[in-house]
Design a protein around this nucleic acid. Sequence first.
DNA 1: ATATAAATGCAACATTATTGTATTTAGAAA
DNA 2: TTTCTAAATACAATAATGTTGCATTTATAT
Lengths: 150, 150
Amino acid sequence: MAQVKSNYQFEDMLQKHNLKKTAPRLRVLSMMYSKNTATSQPDLESVMNDIDRVTLYRILNVFEEKGIIHKVFDLNGTANYAVCHSDCQENHHHDEHLHFNCTACKNVYCLNELNIPKLTLPAGFEPQAFTIYASGLCPKCSKKGTAKVN
Amino acid sequence: MAQVKSNYQFEDMLQKHNLKKTAPRLRVLSMMYSKNTATSQPDLESVMNDIDRVTLYRILNVFEEKGIIHKVFDLNGTANYAVCHSDCQENHHHDEHLHFNCTACKNVYCLNELNIPKLTLPAGFEPQAFTIYASGLCPKCSKKGTAKVN
DNA sequence: ATATAAATGCAACATTATTGTATTTAGAAA
DNA sequence: TTTCTAAATACAATAATGTTGCATTTATAT
Ligand SMILES: [Mn+2]
Ligand SMILES: [Mn+2]
Ligand SMILES: [Zn+2]
Ligand SMILES: [Zn+2]
């Protein structure tokens, strides 16, 4: 499920976006691509505790600007970041997919494969983007509850 | 659109939830029911600047616990609060409606009338609640853009 | 190799969330 | 009505998070 990318590909990504290939950026990219769930800044900080808090903050910001990652708020309102699957451009995201927030493990999953149904809003509303949030149990946690632990 | 309720009804609501009828609580209730959009804590603070910030914080918390209001995060991740339209109970909310966040005026609208289509998630996911977010222009702001200002 | 713009790390500050507690107050009981 | 008590408020203090400025370091173009 998690995308497999080589370090060379990460360097390529940075270059394409006119970003310098630095160690902190490559590490963030590799961590985010290795997971199939979104990552909060506290998550990043605890794993990469040798990188400055502000540096991570700025890396996440610039990645979001460039359309490399997108931000999603979980049930508690804390920001989580996930890689953009699609054709996101600088300052123009297209992340209209479903976000699933597991109430047990708290992980946030981007379910890109799901297409969002068309909705008609009340008169006057002119929607430009939709996202759906679902909360409940993710595959891992629902398995734990019922049968054997994975 | 905004619900009209008398002060007597607000007192009644507090009593039903075993909350004392205090001036700050009644003022918060009356403000939130008078609007058809969600209210952020900074909003409340600026209007009711004689009430302590922490008091407002705790009022919002207890109202949410009791199922009187629900929290919704806007595009910037700041919490907004809106009255629950339906059968929300203590620690058991049923606010599965669409939230519309206007990119111009930043207001958040709860569109309760809209029913959310059934969605089938990938195998293993066990959703318990859905909410849809839409962003774009609200009726007021779309009108401003095209024709005369309202 | 050198120059330079970009990125990092550190300090400082801003904002918001949260907890503790003394004082006040609503509502029950006398 | 007065008295009592648990609940609520206000204020102080701390924690957590977001943001900016700037000196130092580093990637990369020349
Ligand atoms: Mn996503
Ligand atoms: Mn709502
Ligand atoms: Zn889970
Ligand atoms: Zn608007």
